[in-house]
């Protein structure tokens, strides 16, 4: 085993200090070290998008980064979306109401990809929405309801 390294990573506004092997993927760090299993792992090679998180505010694949790379950086995961246990984030609420999920495996990655997208544009066209979703695979809902949910979320957040 290679030497462990200390990291201090801020996740959902809370700082975590841990000792990790350099080869530990950020996705595994979130899930196994911190127990934040909302970040899903589908393919581990960048294709499915289930592991998407925010890295310093921008969406990124947590399966294509090492935890050591996040040292000193700010991560946001799906657990950090809602303000408290009783209130969903408007995007989550819209996904619920518009049937934007079935099994929910893809949902955390989709939500985390949509946060920066809607921050920049609260009046997206359907084409822009589909482009923004192109990096996230859903195997059961079909994309139509997901697109509807994004439209609903954008409308409410305007």
């Amino acid at each position: 085993m290679t030497r462990l390294r200390s990291v201090a990573i801020t996740v959902n506004n809370q700082e975590y200090k841990r000792e990790v092997e350099p080869r530990m993927l950020l996705s595994d760090f979130l899930r196994h070290e911190l127990g934040l299993t909302g970040t899903h792992v589908g393919c581990e090679h960048g294709v499915c998008g289930a592991c998407s998180i925010l890295f310093d505010g921008e969406s990124a694949r947590s399966c294509l980064m090492f935890a050591v790379q996040a040292d000193g950086h700010a991560i946001r995961t799906v657990e950090g979306l809602s303000a408290d246990e009783d209130h969903l984030h408007p995007i989550q609420q819209a996904f619920w109401e518009a049937h934007g999920l079935q099994c929910g495996f893809c949902t955390p990655g989709i939500l985390m990809s949509l946060i920066p997208f809607l921050e920049k544009n609260l009046d997206p066209t359907e084409e822009e929405i589909r482009h923004a979703l192109s990096g996230n695979l859903c195997r059961c809902t079909g994309y139509q309801h997901i697109v509807d949910a994004v439209k609903l979320a954008a409308e409410r957040m305007r």
Binding site: G46, G49, S52, F55, E58, S59, A60, R61, L64, M65, S113, F117, H131, A132, S134, G135, N136
Partner: peptide, 12 residues
Amino acid sequence: VPFIAHPQIRNR
């Protein structure tokens, strides 16, 4: 550039 991969990949 927008033809390259997806937004999450292009961010990195």
